[in-house]
């Protein structure tokens, strides 16, 4: 009997309280972002619209990847770090500051340049392991997250254009020729030397 009346009493009381809570939240400003209209990247705007409730997009947001080829040394560490092999790098030896026209303090060093740097964003899981592994900080996550494409193939980001690739390959072959010439010269010199010795 007691339980019976307790049930009624508690039922009415808790429903009463519940209704007051849901009505109270009726008057609170919604926190959903009206996405395409509202600019979510700027903290100030968000603060204005949502009264300081929502955090802005953080600086270290892990969006799609970007590569700064001018500092990439084609060391392939990111390729090794990626657990699902979505980065592909082909590289040739060449002095890249000369090829890419970037001005560096140091004289052009012979180094490697990518002739292909593809990231398959359709496979990538945004784990940041590649960015953590990169010694130069060339590969980074950007704050871009809108990347809908019509075709899967479009999700493969190629950072080296055909032109650059050709330039690099040409320079590579030039270098090879140079190296070969040098070698030949050296060999000739050596041959001369040995001949002289004889």
């Amino acid at each position: 009997m007691n339980a019976y009346f307790n049930n009624i009493k508690n039922g009415i009381q808790t429903v009463f309280e519940g209704m007051s809570i849901s009505l109270a939240s009726f008057f609170v400003h919604p926190i959903t972002i009206q996405y395409p209209e509202d600019d979510i990247s700027s903290a100030e705007k968000l603060k204005e619209t949502y009264k300081g409730q929502l955090g802005p997009m953080p600086e270290n947001y892990r969006g799609i990847l970007d590569v700064d080829l001018s500092i990439c040394t084609a060391c392939q560490l990111c390729v090794k770090a990626c657990p699902i092999d979505c980065i592909v790098i082909d590289a040739v030896k060449c002095d890249k500051s000369k090829v890419q026209g970037t001005k560096s303090e140091k004289p052009a060093v012979k180094t490697r340049t990518c002739t292909r740097f593809d990231i398959h964003m359709g496979k990538c899981m945004f784990c940041a392991l590649c960015t953590l592994a990169c010694p130069t900080g060339a590969i980074v996550h950007t704050k871009v997250f809108e990347m809908n494409k019509y075709q899967l193939q479009d999700l493969v980001l190629s950072f080296v254009s055909e032109e650059e690739k050709e330039k690099a390959i040409k320079r590579d072959s030039e270098l090879k020729v140079e190296a070969a010439a040098e070698k030949a010269a050296k060999a000739a010199k050596e041959a001369e030397k040995t001949e002289e010795e004889k």
């Binding site: 953080p58 947001y61 945004f126």
Partner: peptide, 12 residues
């Protein structure tokens, strides 16, 4: 949001 601040991702 808080976890995103420390690591940049929201779920994984």
């Amino acid at each position: 949001d808080l976890l995103e601040m420390i690591c940049g991702a929201r779920l994984t």
